[in-house]
Design a protein around this nucleic acid. Structure first.
Length: 209
DNA sequence: ACGAGGATGCTCT
DNA sequence: GAGCATCCTCGTG
């Protein structure tokens, strides 16, 4: 499996979010072997986006550093870097940083369909869990793939954690909606998912909540 | 099947 | 102190 390159992630965030649907997420786990999931749902977050952690920050080109304070500063990192953070005090969410260094943005990986390593994912998530519940949400897939803040700031363009080619996206219908679980910029249709796919998360988009 | 509410801790938008 | 890019359990029908 050849990793998707830095160039792939240096593109505009919304384009990357759409292009990642149908690709694979791969984790070569030291204990669990190779874990692979097909990405079925993503969301885009950009620098000028009120719902994004980078929205109140900017980049000082002279200084070559982020102006302002906050966790969102890491969204200005080089494309292909991991942005992993804790939400609701419990769940890790995996994002991949987009656009050139100095431009803030990332794509949230919201759901995948297990392709390889399902037994290990079952072990991580709990033995009595139904298969569809293993990875049909951003917190769930992080737990199933054993992803937490130890990956934050590392690159996602080489093992052990990376993205790889999947079936051509043109073979599938990619639908869009408002993003899930946000209170700002709910009008932006920046969630991308495979229409009618069973592993897409069940939550309701924020403009119809 | 579905909805309500709680868990739990970091960030400050 | 409030809000948060979530998930699970426990009610009710």
């Amino acid at each position: 499996m050849e990793p998707l390159s830095v160039d792939f992630f240096s593109q505009p965030t919304v384009s990357v979010a759409r292009a990642l649907v149908g690709q694979h997420l791969v984790h070569d786990h030291p204990d669990g072997g190779r874990l692979v999931g097909r990405i079925v749902e993503t969301e885009a977050y950009t620098e000028d986006d009120p719902a994004c952690h980078a929205s109140h920050l900017s980049y000082d080109d002279e200084a070559g550093a982020v102006s302002g304070e906050g966790r969102g500063a890491d969204l200005f990192a080089p494309p292909g870097d991991a942005y992993v953070y804790l939400i609701y005090g419990m769940h890790w969410l995996l994002n991949v940083v987009t656009e050139p260094k100095g431009t803030g943005g990332a794509v949230l990986i919201r759901a995948v369909e297990p392709v390889l390593g399902e037994a290990f994912m079952q072990e991580k998530r709990g033995p009595s869990r139904r298969p569809v519940e293993l990875t049909n949400g951003p917190g769930k897939l992080a737990e199933a793939f054993d992803i937490n803040d130890r990956f934050h700031g590392g690159n996602l363009t080489s093992p052990p954690l990376y993205f790889a080619d999947g079936p051509s996206p043109e073979q599938h219908t990619i639908a869009t909606s408002s993003r899930i679980g946000i209170s700002k910029a709910v009008e932006r249709q920046w969630r991308f998912y495979l229409a009618d796919h069973p592993y897409v998360s069940k939550a309701v988009p924020s403009d119809r909540a």
